[in-house]
Design a protein around this nucleic acid. Structure first.
Lengths: 149, 149
DNA sequence: TCCTACTGTAGGGTATCCCTACAATTGAGC
DNA sequence: GCTCAATTGTAGGGATACCCTACAGTAGGA
């Protein structure tokens, strides 16, 4: 028989932080599970997107934009560079920095992850109508502090 | 000068999972920071609420309700029991189980955390109007799979 | 009695988050 | 040119969360 869904404590459902935590974890788990074969994690995807979007960046800049610590980013980039998705070169104008560039393979990986992410997102919010999903997204953006465009 | 807010990658703002992850982490960090002096974490609060709400429970039941692994719950309960917030006794009817009960001090701690959580939640969604906050909460509940009442 | 299942516990492995320390490099002031 | 502070990438540690296995004690059914 199907393992009936666990009954959550009603008193915790009051807290958006609790709800977002569960939805976030569920989404990450499902996406990572789908991506297991591709050898890329959701966290690495974020880094790839950041580099791909804002052109060549230093590691410190990527860390700032993603809210990561630059020391943690080092290991992520080690993997992304080894996979051939990111080019890591010395900045000739400031030899303290590295210049990070997304490769063609990196861009292809981003596309693949976006597909998976779209599917999982649709499934994660399957109980919501398209209008409700759009409203939820808009409110999250606003709470996040970004223009809703 | 004030450290101007970091510019997030626009391509990631498409993903509700990314947005919820950031909001969740921000909320947890702020709540835990506020609670640092009280010696209780948000995670422990969840356990206290669960036990307080559903009366005496076994550890396995608490783990199921919160989506935790029962082996991880052991250490949490060690702390909660040592703090005098939870009573952990053998179940006389099934000696494999422990009977978990919230103490008076535990209930007081729950109340204190709820106050802090309310303040942080209001701050976290400060950019939203009361109506928008209510809508966001309702949509999160619906996505989560709970009746919106 | 024997076997299976459940419960709490110990422990390990991995990942995230946050911190410090350090060497190389840069730029400003002298 | 020299000195000093700040920046950058890197190494490493600690705390926590999440997931897994193993094991002993217990319960219940064949």
């Amino acid at each position: 028989m199907a393992p009936l869904p666990p009954e959550r404590p009603r008193a915790l459902l009051r807290w958006p932080t609790y709800l977002m935590g569960h939805l976030h974890r569920t989404g990450v788990s499902r996406i990572d599970a789908e991506l297991a074969g591709s050898g890329v994690s959701l966290r690495e995807f974020y880094v790839l997107v950041c580099i791909g979007e804002s052109g060549p960046l230093s590691q410190q800049r990527v860390a700032d934009r993603l809210g990561l610590d630059r020391s943690d980013l080092v290991k992520v980039l080690d993997r992304l560079e080894a996979a051939g998705w990111v080019l890591r070169e010395r900045d000739t104008e400031d030899r303290r920095r590295h210049v990070l560039t997304l490769t063609g393979d990196g861009r292809a990986t981003v596309g693949k992850v976006e597909e998976v992410s779209s599917e999982v997102t649709a499934e994660l919010f399957g109980r919501l109508s398209p209008g409700e999903r759009e409203t939820l997204h808009r409110l999250l953006l606003k709470a996040f502090g970004e223009p809703s465009g």
